[in-house]
Nucleic acid binder design. Structure first.
Lengths: 218, 218
DNA sequence: TACATTTGACAACACTTCATGTCAACATTG
DNA sequence: CAATGTTGACATGAAGTGTTGTCAAATGTA
């Protein structure tokens, strides 16, 4: 790098020192990446376009990111953080009973993606095809979520006959049904009311729960 | 085009007339596309590499396809045909009872994708990000499949309270759970035995069916 | 054998993108 | 104001890709 940052705060400019300005530029780029990737898709958004969107020049792009993939990774992390924050925030002021906890979690999930459709493109579609590296990363993320669901199932139905049924696989299937319903919802422009989608999402969780109960009994 | 095909069968070469040779080259290209797209992904497989894989030169590529996307479309159609054929063939010699029909269908689906992992990459991942056009096409395909499942549900539970439950949405969720389980299975190298995955797939169909029954009763 | 057609290897061109570099204009401090 | 850090617009080169064209060798036909 030619422009190696000094350790000092640097001269102030527009009320901000150099570190703050760089941070601000980085955030502009992430927002621009969210916009570009989230609307046109990763493979149809070039560095030039992203910089135009961010109102910054290419030089500042490479100041913060080694390449386009690195930016996507940051955008992806940002997107997943957005969703996660919304969910845990809502869970904080929700009931304690597990069923309504799950329901609010899913509702907030749906709300967040509907309110910013770019997120769904980033999280559910592009993340799989950007690169092998990003693909693994995204798999780990959804996997950790599925594991949460899995442990929830196990805590609710500890007697599950493990020889025949794997709570982890059930959790995966549940995540899949939810994700797929969201994808379909988004693909059709979020035309149906959120409540309707939500009801069908939880329907699967209820159905799986009932099935689990049936199997622990029999 | 300079090489405009004559309507006549043309001279014989290597025992085949021109039309047969062209057909054969086309199939070589589709097979090569299946290999390249299915292993490295659409966005990481160039025309040159595909031609190398097919042992043909670029000229013959553009003889059969206008561009890379056109080839992908053909590969996609081929892949979906492969799966469809396997499923309907198996259904032909299966029982009539609906549950075992569904089970064999899913089993053959799983077998086909396990025996050729390239198919799952093409059908489940790449199809979404190649282009808006291909994306729509793939959505239509899975949608038509979901509609089949949906009509099946309706025929089994005609009393479903339509005001609150949409058989189509349930079908979508079921497709999603299956697809997701397969993706996860494939991503981990098909390590778990097929029967185990199959059991968990049908578990969701059973669970949804039981739930539907519960709702028609109540 | 002589000739036409088909083929394969590869050159060539246009085009795009990434990534870095140049330089004048601007803002800030002393 | 002068000096210097900072920015934006744009040039540039390297590399890859898609697409068309050239040409000699191989393969068929008369």
């Amino acid at each position: 790098m030619k422009t190696s940052k000094p350790a000092t705060p640097g001269r102030r400019f527009r009320g901000l020192d150099s570190r703050q300005r760089q941070q601000q530029r980085r955030e502009q780029l992430i927002e621009a990446g969210l916009q570009a990737f989230g609307t046109k898709g990763y493979h149809n958004a070039g560095v030039r376009e992203i910089c135009g969107e961010a109102k910054l020049t290419e030089r500042y792009f490479y100041e913060s990111f080694a390449n386009r993939e690195a930016l996507f990774l940051a955008v992806y992390a940002h997107a997943i953080e957005t969703v996660r924050n919304a969910v845990v925030l809502a869970l904080g002021r929700s009931d304690r009973d597990v069923r309504s906890l799950a329901r609010t979690a899913i509702r907030v999930f749906l709300e967040t993606l509907r309110d910013d459709p770019r997120l769904s493109r980033i999280l559910l579609i592009d993340a799989l095809t950007v690169s092998a590296d990003v693909g693994r990363q995204s798999q780990l993320a959804t996997q950790s979520f599925a594991e949460l669901v899995g442990s929830l199932i196990l805590s609710l139905y500890p007697q599950l006959p493990k020889r025949h049924v794997d709570a982890q696989l059930i959790a995966n299937g549940l995540v899949g049904s939810t994700v797929y319903l969201v994808m379909h919802w988004a693909a059709n422009g979020f035309d149906q009311p959120l409540e309707r989608i939500l009801e069908h999402c939880v329907l699967f969780y209820d159905a799986a729960g009932a099935q689990a109960e049936r199997m622990t009994a029999g």
